[in-house]
């Protein structure tokens, strides 16, 4: 069975999904990531899906679960690189990705994580916190 590699870069775990995943592979990734977050103590996870030509409800649910589990382990997840055609399809499918942060590319994803950690470290009196990051909902 194929396995999706998890790379550690500084305080971030980077996952780049390059294959058409079988459901088992997706579930394996979910487990691997939780293990690696605990083992490395990383506070951020970036999942690059720019190579995926579709995201169906199973993959969507896996991503949402990964984000939720990571949050429990004190790590923020950002999904980056979703293709326009995939996004349009997800909207039509009615799939919401609640609790998932998204960014256009890996670099913007890293910016987002850095900002989040910065805010967490205190001294932030910003009362519109949260409005600067897109939260996902359907019309």
């Amino acid at each position: 069975m194929d396995r999706v590699p998890v790379l550690k870069i500084g305080d971030i775990l980077l996952v780049s999904i390059q294959i058409d995943m079988e459901d088992q592979v997706a579930l394996q990734l979910q487990e691997d990531l939780a293990d690696r977050i605990v083992a490395t103590g990383c506070h951020g996870v970036i999942i690059d899906i720019s190579a995926l030509d579709i995201v169906d409800s199973f993959v969507g649910r896996t991503l949402a679960t990964i984000a939720a589990v990571s949050r429990v382990l004190d790590a923020e997840t950002v999904v980056v690189g979703m293709r326009p055609a995939v996004a349009i399809t997800l909207v039509e499918l009615g799939l919401q990705l609640p609790g998932i942060r998204t960014a256009l590319n890996v670099e913007l994803g890293m910016d987002l994580l850095a900002r989040e950690r910065g805010d967490d470290d205190g001294d932030d009196g910003d009362d519109v916190e949260g409005t600067d990051t897109p939260a996902v909902s359907t019309p």
Partner: peptide, 8 residues
């Protein structure tokens, strides 16, 4: 909504 899903 699609743009948000992509992070914009």
């Amino acid at each position: 909504v699609a743009a948000r899903l992509m992070g914009a």
